[in-house]
C-alpha cells in the first residue's frame, strides 16, 4: 500500500507518566474553569447549598425517629449510624460534584454526536467523558457531610487510631470509585439503548440504601449492596472501620473489587465505542 508521511515532532507524551501528568493538568483546568463559572452563578451555589442541607436533614429524619423507638438496632447505636450518614454524605457529595454532571450527559453525547468531538481529541475519551464537567456547588454537601461525621464520632465516643482512619479512607475511596464505575456502566448502556436518563434515576434511588447500615437489610439484599451495587463501601464499611470493628480483610476485598469493576467498565467502554464507531453515521 501507499505510505504516507508526517512532520517530525516530539511525541505528545514522552512516557506513561507524562501522559498522566498531561491529563491531570487538564483536569485542573476543568476544575479552575468550574470554580470561575460558579462565581458567576451565586444564586445557584446558594440554592444547591440550601437544598443539600434540607435533604441531609430529611435523610436523618427516619434514623432519628427509628432510634426514638429503640436504643440499638442490629448492634448499631444512633451515634454510629450518624457517623455512617456523614460518610455517605461525603462520598455521594463527591460523586455529585465530579462524576454525576458528566454521566447525565451521556445520552446527548451519544445521540447528538457530541462524542465525535471528544474522540477527536488526544486525550483518553473515557477520562474526558467521566470527569469533564464539575459541579463545584455540590462540594458544600461534602462539607456538611464532614460536619455530620464529626458529630457522629463525638457522640459515639469513638477514637479511631491512624490505621483505622486509613482503613476508613481507603474504603470510602473504594466506595467512590465503585459507585462511579456502576454509574458509568449504566451510563455506557447508552451506546446500545440510546437513552439512559431513566437509568440514572434508578441509580439515584438505589443509592439511598447507603443511608442505612448493611446489617439493617436481609442477607440477600446485603450481598446485592456489597457486590452488585456496592454502596456498602461508601457508608457501612468506612463507618465500621472508624468504630474499630473492621480488620484489613474488607479493605483488601474493596481494593480487589475496585480492580475487577474498573476492568469490567473499561471493557464495556471499549465494546461500546466499537459499536459506536461501526454503527454511527
Amino acid at each position: 500500500m501507499t505510505r504516507t508521511m508526517a512532520d517530525d515532532r516530539r511525541p505528545l507524551d514522552a512516557s506513561w507518566l507524562h501522559r498522566q501528568r498531561r491529563h491531570f493538568r487538564l483536569w485542573r483546568r476543568f476544575l479552575g474553569q468550574a470554580v470561575v463559572r460558579e462565581t458567576h452563578y451565586r444564586a445557584h451555589f446558594a440554592t444547591t447549598l440550601l437544598v443539600g442541607l434540607v435533604e441531609l436533614g430529611l435523610g436523618v429524619v427516619p434514623i432519628l425517629l427509628l432510634f426514638g423507638f429503640a436504643q440499638e438496632v442490629q448492634g448499631w447505636s444512633r451515634a454510629e449510624v450518624i457517623t455512617l450518614v456523614g460518610v455517605y454524605q461525603i462520598v455521594t457529595g463527591l460523586m455529585a460534584a465530579f462524576v454525576a454532571p458528566n454521566l447525565q450527559r451521556m445520552t446527548s453525547y451519544i445521540t447528538e454526536g457530541e462524542l465525535d468531538g471528544v474522540l477527536l481529541r488526544p486525550v483518553s475519551s473515557q477520562f474526558y467523558l467521566t470527569l469533564r464537567w464539575i459541579n463545584v456547588a455540590e462540594l458544600s454537601n461534602v462539607a456538611s457531610g464532614i460536619a455530620v461525621l464529626v458529630i457522629g464520632l463525638v457522640q459515639s465516643g469513638a477514637s479511631p487510631n491512624a490505621a483505622q482512619v486509613l482503613q476508613a479512607f481507603v474504603l470510602a475511596a473504594c466506595g467512590l470509585v465503585l459507585l462511579a464505575t456502576v454509574w458509568s456502566a449504566l451510563a455506557f448502556l447508552a451506546f446500545w439503548l440510546q437513552s439512559v436518563g431513566p437509568i440514572a434515576y434508578i441509580y439515584l434511588n438505589l443509592v439511598e440504601a447507603g443511608r442505612y447500615p448493611l446489617a439493617f437489610f436481609p442477607v440477600a439484599v446485603r450481598a446485592f449492596l456489597t457486590f452488585a451495587f456496592p454502596v456498602a463501601f461508601a457508608s457501612t464499611y468506612p463507618a465500621q472501620a472508624l468504630a474499630g470493628d473492621l480488620g484489613w480483610t474488607p479493605v483488601a476485598g474493596g481494593v480487589a473489587l475496585v480492580v475487577v469493576a474498573v476492568t469490567l467498565v473499561r471493557l464495556l467502554w471499549r465494546r461500546g465505542l466499537r459499536t459506536y464507531a461501526s454503527a454511527s453515521s
Partner: peptide, 25 residues
Amino acid sequence: IFMVANICVPIISLLIWRTAIANGA
C-alpha cells in the same frame, strides 16, 4: 424504568422498619 426507580425507596424503608420491629423496637 422510572417506576422501578420509584419503588426502590419504599422498599428500602420497608426493609429498615421491619428490621427495627424484629429487633424489638
